[in-house]
Design a binder for these strands. Structure first.
Lengths: 193, 193, 193, 193
DNA sequence: TATGAATGAGAGTTCATTCAT
DNA sequence: TATGAATGAACTCTCATTCAT
């Protein structure tokens, strides 16, 4: 009796993440999601209006978890470069310790869902408001970072991270703390003045 | 009349690229591909064993075209950094002038097809054999580039390029020659010793 | 406190009538009925064995209400034609002042439920026993009405009434007292010798 | 090789009519329609965009057949009453010799489809243009028929016919030529001045 | 007595693939 | 060689009904 209600909601989200991570949005039919979640197919629709809503909701929750992980131990007091390294290595470590979360987020970005989603965000300038946005804007103001459009700074910093994480997860490279540090440093090199 | 027939093959490949680029692998049903290619649905199966084969074949052909574009004007005689810049800016320019090709390649990478495909390639070390592989290996040998696993050099160099290209194509940033040069320079910064 | 509970029973019947009248038997799911009745879905099954029983029960109750309305002010003392006119105009007026009841009854008749229901009734000759049945049999006996099978007299008298009521309710015609009188008179013309 | 192509289209329409006539729009699922038509479920969608289109198309075709049947032997030369009788008895005879067509048309009228359909027609005044519309307007002009809105003349003439046809088909009455003539005469009585 | 979360069969529809022509 | 009508398995989603609380 210990377990609270929204058990099933969680189970459905978890099953969705696993299946999409493993097989892509294709081959993650509702029937399989339900089966893996240990619920009936119809039950999905008590918690999520339809499959699209399920998929977007899951993405939002993962993003929240990622942000929470990154903000842990992050403090304005540290020197600029250290803060950058904290965030970049943090993100990379989160990805490689949460391969399913990573794969899901990647799949999401490369799908009609993801494009529409990002479009909204960019139009609303909400990207500039996150931890990273603040950091980068500050860096440019202090002339520590190259003076480039914010979007490009993101690309330079995270493009490699995502790429590296994918290769680690697929087993094409084996990361360790030293390597992670060197990768983050290389990202720093590409951004710094 | 020499190559009269392969008309239809080309048309099918072109239609597939367009549809996948515009709508994703979902919503690129064979019926639509056939319609846009101006052939009957059954005709697809004369040229390609099944849809998977069509998709992989198309990817291979696009890759070949990309490589051809990059090798144009590329010569071992130029200084190392110049050769690097040639390849990186060349890739970025190809992507933003060929948005459908870019989108297709991206879709492909983020799909079960793409993973299996790359796995083969990495295991066979064929990645090391391309223009880029040669360049990077040479750069490490000459201690111009950071001493990192080849895979990671790829990630550092191309992760940002792909990311930037995507944002340009989605309209989130407007690239011009100056910007492209600066982005390539930033990539160089992240790779060089 | 005598009939405190049947609150919910009433609410369910009322909700069913409204929804079926508005949207047809389709699109009147139990969940919606429950919601509009302000009860839980499961509660429906305390009062009605299943949905079919609910639907038939509601029909019976509506019929009872219609008969009650018609018998009001009806008396054997008045001349024959007057009694006929009383019933026919009464029915038409009831329908157009109770559009939901009308629509429900119509829906019911045109459904598998309705056919089985009427079959029972006709086989048991119960149709002959209502107010109308008595009136018509009397009319034939007195050679005021055409000598036709009772069923046909019903069709001649009520076929037009139902049709007219439907058109009024759908807004295709706007009835008033004069028009109602003329319609009833036309029905009389078709029945009288 | 004798049978032409649209075999399957016909079979689907026929199966739909039979199933709807027998069981109502409920219980006429696509799977059953396909099975009875001797085609695969997917085949329905080669001929009809969706189930709604199938249902409306079938209605339109039945209506065309009914009109064709009525116009047969109809001529402006005959006296007015004779023409009226021709149409009314013709309709009734068509209905009782085509019980499935009749049931389908009835089901259709009493459904969301039918209401929307008729609304269009009345708004466009197309009802006035049919054989019946012309006849009734002429009758009013010549002061042979009661001066009532056209819609009501339809109700008075056809309300009973539909009702009688239903009862015959359900087996509640057994019509013959004499009875049909008397019913049509009664309709005439209700319309004539 | 009343609840409403859960069920799962079945609805309409899509689409990769086949095969008679 | 090319066609495109036909297939039928699989998809997302609905809903009458049940049952633990």
């Amino acid at each position: 009796m210990e377990e609270s209600k929204p058990d099933k909601r969680e189970a459905i989200l978890q099953a969705t993440m696993e299946l999409v991570a493993e097989h892509g949005f294709h081959d993650a039919p509702c029937s399989l999601i339900a089966e893996r979640a240990g619920v009936a197919a119809g039950t999905i629709y008590r918690y999520f209006e339809n499959k699209d809503v399920l998929i977007v909701t899951l993405y939002r929750e993962l993003e929240t978890r990622i942000n929470a992980a990154l903000e842990e131990g992050y403090t304005q007091e540290k020197p600029f470069r250290e803060r950058f390294m904290h965030l970049v290595t943090g993100l990379l470590k989160f990805f490689i310790t949460h391969p399913q979360e990573f794969k899901y987020v990647e799949q999401f970005h490369n799908s009609p869902y993801g494009v529409a989603f990002r479009r909204d965000r960019i139009i609303n300038h909400s990207e500039e408001c996150g931890v990273y946005g603040e950091l980068f804007k500050q860096g440019m103001a202090q002339q520590v970072l190259k003076d480039l459009p914010l979007v490009l700074l993101f690309d330079l910093a995270f493009g490699p991270i995502v790429s590296v994480a994918r290769n680690h997860i697929l087993g094409f490279i084996q990361l360790d703390d030293v390597l992670i540090e060197r990768i983050a440093a290389a990202c720093w090199d590409s951004l710094k003045c």
